[in-house]
Design a protein around this nucleic acid. Sequence first.
RNA 1: UGGGGUAUCGCCAAGCGGUAAGGCACCAGUUUUUGGUACUGGCAUUCGGGGGUUCGAAUCCCUCUACCCCAUCCA
Length: 750
Amino acid sequence: MNESKNFLESIVEKDLQSGKYKEIVTRFPPEPNGFPHIGHAKSIFINFGIAREYNGHCNLRMDDTNPTTEDTKYVEALKDAVIWLGYKWDGNVRFTSDYFPALYEYAKKLITMGKAYVDSLSEEEIREYRGTVTEAGKRSKFAQRSISENLDLLERMKNGEFAEGEHVLRAKIDMAAPNMKLRDPLLYRIRHAHHFRTGNEWKIYPMYDFAHCLSDYIEGVTHSICTLEFENNRDIYNWVLDTLELEPPRPYQHEFARLNINYTVMSKRKLLELVEGGYVNGWDDPRLPTIAGYRRKGYTAEAILTFCDQVGVAKANSIVDVSQLEFCIRDDLNKKVPRVLCVLNPLKVTIENYEGREEIDAPYYPHDVPKEGSRKLPFSREIYINREDFEENPPKGYYRLTPQQPVRLRHGYIISCKEIIKDDAGNIIEIKAAYYPDSKSGNDTSGIKVKSAIQWVSADSAKEVEVRLYERLYKSEFPEGIEDLNPNSLQIIKNALIEPAVVTEKPDKRFQFEREGYFYADPLDYTDEKPVFNKIVGLKDSWGKKKTEKQPRAKKSQEKKIQIDGEVTPMTPQQEKFFQRYTQELKLNNEVANTLARDEILSSLYEEALTLLNTPVNLANLIVNEVAREIKEKGFEALQFAAKELAQLTAMLDEEKISNKIAKQVFEEMAKSGKNPTKIVEEKGLVQISDPALIEPIIEEVIAKNPDNVEKFKAGNKKLLGFFVGQALKATGGKANPKIVNELVAKKLG
RNA sequence: UGGGGUAUCGCCAAGCGGUAAGGCACCAGUUUUUGGUACUGGCAUUCGGGGGUUCGAAUCCCUCUACCCCAUCCA
């Protein structure tokens, strides 16, 4: 498990601690209009994971408010995905459509409150009236309708008296809102369509923004977690819940960045295009990032979950490298799966000095995997090895069989090449070899050193199998469309040869084909007569990499990106006047003066404080930095202090009664409680300690407690000075005079 | 162009005024009858840029830049 907390976990912990909620309730709320993919897995992992972590529960809710796109086959797939990933939803599967009656009542309530109206503008008009990002919209004349008329119209909409598009129900919020989503959002539209659950019962269907928040509320959800593109919808979410004056507690929405992986597409539209266009073989094609695809390919749920955990949850749009996912599945399978021998591209080898046959006892697991089990490996005069494991003219660093270099047959004997047989075209078709009888694995007395052991199968007992080799679907790292498809994403080998135990014993469904990768017995097409294996992922291959790479490796551009400074809005004459006064008369630095001059609130506060205390620089710094933050966070009206308190605080600073560090602490307290700063200092005894005699023993102690850091410091790590100062300051509760501490630490450490 | 977000290593990502976590990738080396695994070590003098505040800034303030989302009767 990822040890550091993500921002959602922090929020949940805070809400639990503050008593905002007694129990955490989350929900995974997909629309059943497509097959789930690994992006859903991330959402499932987060929602169910948080519920599990904090002993709450998580609902599975189908957000089925759009009858034209949804289908029950998708709800089954979604349910399967959750179960496969190992989670259990609370109670039954929920459906937004279950709440249609309740939602309808809430809509009537909004109308009654004068907060919603039936609009009869056309679709096009509604769009026009909405305005643009820079221009305010204008409200429909139908917003004037009376409550009773609205109520009547809504009921008749529900009863099917109107055609689609004739009317809609809208929230009455603000047609000039800077957030476009708030410009009287639609709440209901008329749809004469068949819904896969409610049939033809409803003629009106609620929109996402109306249905989602209320469904969350109805289910008692506490944390409504969704992806970043809903950030703008959060305002409506809150508006609906607040306006309806629902009994608390109510849910709050939090957004995280959706999952993206390079060489992969995740959008419903593009996935659909691949399937419908026949570029892949259905929704469970192993090249697809769908849950069904990964499953068919042989991925384990554990690997997917580990991956979700590793990539973390944050708010920055990002694209994760596929190698992270590949690592997860390799890492999982490495410790679970039996190793067997399979020859993908067979080359016949006749061992001329061997007669008869024998069975070699071979363990399924290597020494570093703590699992038991073994099988018999038949060996005979005729065997097959992989074509790539023999080279007539080997490149430098080649470890396998060559005319000069012997090689070990894994679990078996060492062989060496005696003769190369070629066909008329010059292709190698067979190797004549000799084996060393005293080199058998386990009791090798031959003393021959080989550089590698290769996989092989005995010709008389090997089984022919089909192996499907999958590579990334796209050749482009950030694929756009079908033009970026990798033409070689699927290679089918019809006549690979595998050792018999795999088919007869079936020790598992997943295997490592030694030196090749991990493979999975295809759950649909595999039969004992015609076994089929899918490649899950290859092994790491440092040899193959060495061979292919070498030359490209574009050197990264060393120069930093040059950033152009944009234009700064010029000051008004009034601001200019202030600026002049601040810089020249009061000797403030340009930056501080500039900030002050441009901000009316700050400057008036400053001017006022100046009349109480004539310390222009310290006062300006306090206002520009600390007060500005306070105003930014809470607003000017919420300020708990006035110019007088600021002057008092600054005065203490001037007298060096308190240090800057303490001043910040006092300021925070003052901003929170509105207490008088002098009083805070007195009550908490925050007066600065500047006497070296008092500080010195503390420093001694810090030094004594951190011998290794002293070492590091003496070895040249000068950054550690800050560490020691910090520790000493901490020991005094921040009261020690930092300047003095700095000096003393520097002196003591030489 | 208004509003809402986001920027920390090649890719993810912690960090919330006092020593720049961790994972993947990569590079060395050790072990190895899988060119796998495991193990060891190396990988950000610097946090999008520029200023400011502070003894001390990735963290606070100002400002600029880049990218993402919003003008579906989709979710």
